[in-house]
């Protein structure tokens, strides 16, 4: 085996890891604002200013599968989901960390809008 190539490969892999760790840290620390988007099947259904929204529940249906999203005390979370894994419910309240709530089986995403990024059509919608 070529030792130089092996070392290079290890360095590349380590670099990818470090870069993604840095990007993750950056995403975790960056300010997200107060606007939350609910995206179903690739379309933005709701754009909500979470700091002003009264407590309520939103039902989103995708191909007959229901998801119940709850807003309480200016926090948003998935209350019920008709999917096999319930990962979205376990995610809990949408945090500012930049990790969106995702229900893969029902193609539903709840996330903070990326404010400040140029050419973002969603921000103006």
């Amino acid at each position: 085996m070529d030792n130089k190539k092996q070392k290079l490969a290890i360095i590349i892999i380590a670099a990818v890891f470090v870069i993604s760790a840095a990007v993750s840290a950056y995403m975790l620390l960056s300010d997200k604002g107060e606007t939350v988007e609910i995206i179903s099947g690739g379309k933005v259904l709701y754009t909500i200013d979470i700091s002003r929204e009264p407590d309520r529940e939103i039902v989103v249906e995708y191909k007959g599968k229901k998801n119940v999203i709850a807003i309480k005390d200016h926090e948003i979370y998935m209350k019920e989901a008709e999917c096999p894994d319930h990962t979205c419910i376990k995610t809990g309240k949408l945090s500012k960390s930049g990790v969106p709530i995702v229900c893969l089986p029902n193609k539903l995403i709840i996330k903070y809008t990326d404010n400040g990024s140029e050419g973002d059509i969603d921000a103006t919608a």
Binding site: S20, M27, P100
Partner: peptide, 23 residues
């Protein structure tokens, strides 16, 4: 696959987190 299924590039933001956990 998630980008294709969800029809949005939003999920791409997950990649750094996944790469760290994958590492």
């Amino acid at each position: 696959a998630a980008v294709a299924v969800m029809g949005t590039w939003t999920v791409f933001g997950y990649l750094p987190f996944l790469l760290v956990s994958g590492g």
